[in-house]
Measured scan of single mutants.
Amino acid sequence: ENVVSAPMPGKVLRVLVRVGDRVRVGQGLLVLEAMKMENEIPSPRDGVVKRILVKEGEIDDTGQPLIELG
């Protein structure tokens, strides 16, 4: 899985990584606010952040691509 998608609709509060960062499975990639709760979205695998497809403050839909890993 190279693309991390939104598991729920919500607002992107914080992006915790930058392009080029090495990430490990379970590491937080970004924080979504949904139903007044903050949810940290973890990396599904080890890899390198290739692209960040959303910006802080954006509203996303379920299934929307958020981050691409390489």
Rank of each mutant, 00 (worst) to 15 (best):
E1F: 12
E1N: 13
E1R: 10
N2C: 15
N2W: 15
V3E: 06
V4M: 04
V4D: 02
A6R: 04
P7S: 08
P7M: 08
P9Q: 10
P9L: 08
P9W: 09
G10V: 06
G10F: 06
K11Q: 06
K11H: 06
V12M: 03
V12R: 00
V12T: 03
R14K: 12
V15G: 02
L16K: 05
L16A: 03
V17M: 00
R18K: 14
R18H: 11
V19H: 04
G20M: 05
G20N: 06
G20E: 05
D21K: 02
V23A: 02
R24P: 03
V25L: 13
L29W: 01
V31S: 01
V31T: 05
L32S: 00
E33M: 10
M35R: 10
K36R: 11
M37W: 07
M37Y: 08
E38T: 10
E38A: 10
N39W: 15
N39A: 12
N39G: 06
N39P: 03
E40K: 08
S43W: 03
S43D: 01
S43R: 01
P44S: 05
R45M: 14
R45T: 10
D46C: 10
D46S: 10
D46E: 10
G47F: 01
G47D: 03
V48T: 10
V48L: 08
V48S: 05
V49K: 01
V49T: 02
V49G: 01
V49D: 02
K50R: 12
K50F: 07
R51G: 07
I52L: 05
V54F: 07
V54A: 10
V54I: 11
K55C: 12
E56I: 14
E56K: 08
E58Q: 12
I59V: 12
I59S: 09
I59W: 15
D61A: 13
D61I: 14
D61Y: 15
G63C: 10
G63S: 09
G63L: 08
Q64A: 13
Q64W: 12
Q64G: 10
P65F: 07
P65H: 08
P65I: 11
L66S: 03
L66I: 07
E68K: 04
E68H: 08
L69K: 02
G70C: 15
